[in-house]
């Protein structure tokens, strides 16, 4: 099968280019990461991130035939129609909207900065009990669909608002994390958290495009979380 990969080495290339590879997959429905590993055996200068190879570490987010996803849990059959049977090339590009370091590796600093801005840690100033803080199963259920985020950046880098203002708009991933703590019955910093997002950019640049929902490899829904935060802001204001 044909694989077309975005290549750029800052030391030798003036500008990026697409390079074609021929890979023998034996007709198997491999994961995209397996294909990349086969390419790297041919050409060890190809660079991409990977770690757990099972979709929980979030290293190998990339743009696969036009859609962001994790290479390790995207089988060729789902990459795009025609890729598996060789009618179409597998096209791999780095996540859009972030500076490219080399090949498929992007500089995620802006993404992590936005994550840090939402103070992604539990804030509770009451003295801790000798055992755990109690939380009812119903309260615990409120952070399901939020805490599972793996920070792969597939969502934020598919969001036009994040492309335009990656320094000001928090982006879907950070906002999901923000709501993960707002929704946690053990967290006490609700008011401060909300106050920090009540500007025209941090949260309100979300236009409800929902690219984030369509690409999230963990099936999470940042748009819904953003809607909940907006409701909380409204409730606090009126």
């Amino acid at each position: 099968m044909k694989v077309s990969i975005y290549r750029y080495n800052p030391e030798t290339d003036r500008e990026p280019y697409m390079k074609e590879y021929e890979v023998d997959t034996g007709g198997k429905d491999l994961m995209v990461l397996d294909v990349l590993n086969l390419v790297k055996e041919q050409d060890d200068s190809l660079v991409y991130r990977r770690s757990c190879r099972e979709g929980v570490c979030g290293s190998d987010g990339m743009n696969i035939n036009g859609k962001n996803g994790l290479a390790c849990i995207t089988p060729l059959s789902l990459a795009a129609p025609g890729v598996l049977d060789g009618r179409k090339a597998l096209i791999l590009r780095p996540l859009p909207g972030l500076p490219v370091v080399r090949d498929l590796v992007v500089d995620m600093t802006m993404f992590y900065n936005q994550y840090e801005k939402v103070q992604p840690y539990l804030q509770n100033n009451t003295p801790a009990p000798a055992i755990e803080r109690l939380q009812s199963p119903a309260d615990r259920e409120k952070i399901d669909g939020l805490y599972e985020c793996i920070l792969c950046a597939c969502c934020s880098t598919s969001c036009p608002s994040f492309w335009w203002n990656p320094d000001k708009f928090l982006g879907p991933a950070a906002l999901l994390q923000s709501y993960r703590f707002l929704a946690d019955s053990r967290d006490q910093a609700t008011d401060e958290r909300l106050a920090r997002m009540d500007d025209p950019f941090s949260l309100f640049r979300c236009r409800g495009i929902m690219n984030c929902v369509s690409v999230c490899p963990k099936g999470l829904n940042p748009t819904r979380a953003i809607g909940h935060i907006r409701e909380m802001l409204l409730e606090r204001a009126v």
Partner: peptide, 18 residues
């Protein structure tokens, strides 16, 4: 986290609400 003086309400929620 972001201040902006040229916005209408200087506040995301009021802009959004308006």
């Amino acid at each position: 986290m972001v201040t902006s003086v040229t916005t209408l309400g200087r506040n995301g929620l009021s802009d959004w609400l308006v």
